[in-house]
């Protein structure tokens, strides 16, 4: 297993190199990071040249890529050239934003998995029941809704719910703008109140689509195992319905869904970007939007590489999980 993981990581290095090079060329063609400085009144050509030299944009693209790559692997991700950011350190900005987005993605994925698996199993056990049909219709509906629309709807109801709370004399509970602030200060109850209120709506909006996918997938895989020979054998031996479902069918039916969840991370990440925009979180979404709008090459490169590496890692996690959960699969 260890050897397989190492080999897979080695294989993904050339892909990452080509990917980062293409991204680099693309980002470099995005525009001239010096144009804003040039347009400013009172800036001389010498100032522009000095900035060009300090950013290294006066050299050919291959040299620049190599410079970027060598400093990137050493942890120097460069500085932002966007005005108003005071040449912020890309590493700090991107990792901070990644942490904000990761919290959202992790909570939403966990919730989607637990609920999706539960609903999928129930729908499979009670196939063609009212519950099954309702779950199927809701899943189809959720598939067809853009994440940001779900977020907008939840946000509008959240605001109305808060208004209801204040009219009853209670504090506003649901936060509809911004991630949790102030860390873990205050009493235990306060922290729970604050964090649940902040995370509830964004997590719910992000969860919905993955939940739909997982519940459909879990239902299909559960139906397949329920009709397999070893489940019939277990029933024939006289085991109780609950034991057959949970001990024999459920455990094996979980395998494809868990793998799907690991592969799905990239898509959930895209959804998180839109959810953040609606709820005003300063995560990867706002970093991307401002970096693209302000022609910020170093920031974009940092962003792209972080996301690309996450996707590679989670694809590997999916493969390893699959082999670990299903002993019939041997990674060589």
């Amino acid at each position: 297993m260890i050897r397989y993981i190492i080999r897979r990581l080695l294989i993904s290095i050339p892909i990452l190199l080509v990917g980062t090079f293409l991204s680099f060329v693309l980002v470099a063609s995005l525009g001239d990071p010096l144009s804003e400085l040039r347009a400013k009144p009172g800036v001389t050509e010498a100032d522009v040249q000095a900035l060009a030299q300090s950013l290294g944009v006066d050299k050919p693209i291959l040299v620049r890529y190599w410079d970027w790559l060598t400093s990137f692997v050493q942890g120097d991700w460069g500085t932002s050239v966007a005005l108003g950011q005071a040449r912020a350190d890309v590493y700090t900005v991107v990792t901070d934003a990644l942490w904000v987005t990761a919290q959202l993605v992790i909570f939403a994925q966990l919730l989607a998995l637990v609920l999706g698996v539960a609903v999928g199993v129930l729908a499979a056990v009670r196939q063609y029941s009212i519950f099954d049909y309702t779950a199927t219709s809701l899943a189809f509906l959720a598939f067809s809704m853009p994440v940001f629309c779900v977020a907008i709807i939840l946000k509008s109801y959240g605001i109305q719910f808060n208004n209801l709370l204040t009219s009853m004399g209670a504090d506003r509970w649901l936060t509809t703008a911004g991630p949790p602030t102030g860390g873990f200060s205050g009493g235990f109850g306060e922290v729970i109140f604050k964090y649940s209120g902040t995370f509830l709506l964004p997590t719910l909006s992000l969860m919905l689509i993955s939940f739909a996918a997982y519940s459909r997938f879990q239902r299909a895989s559960m139906l397949e195992t329920l009709h397999s020979d070893y489940v019939r054998t277990a029933r024939a031996k006289g085991l109780s319905q609950g034991r057959v479902i949970f001990r024999h069918a459920f455990r094996n039916a979980l395998i494809p869904v868990v793998t799907l969840a690991a592969l799905n991370v990239g898509q959930v990440f895209t959804g998180a970007i839109m959810t953040e925009q609606v709820f005003g979180w300063n995560g990867m979404g706002s970093v991307l939007v401002s970096a693209v709008r302000q022609y910020d090459p170093n920031m974009l490169m940092g962003w792209l590489v972080v996301v690309a590496i996450s996707v590679v890692v989670f694809n590997l996690v999916a493969d390893v999980l699959y082999a670990y959960l299903d002993p019939r699969i041997r990674l060589g």
Partner: peptide, 14 residues
């Protein structure tokens, strides 16, 4: 592995 949302945004902006 390339996040389409970022690459698309960059190309469209350019």
């Amino acid at each position: 592995i390339l996040p389409y949302i970022a690459v698309a945004a960059i190309i469209i902006r350019t």
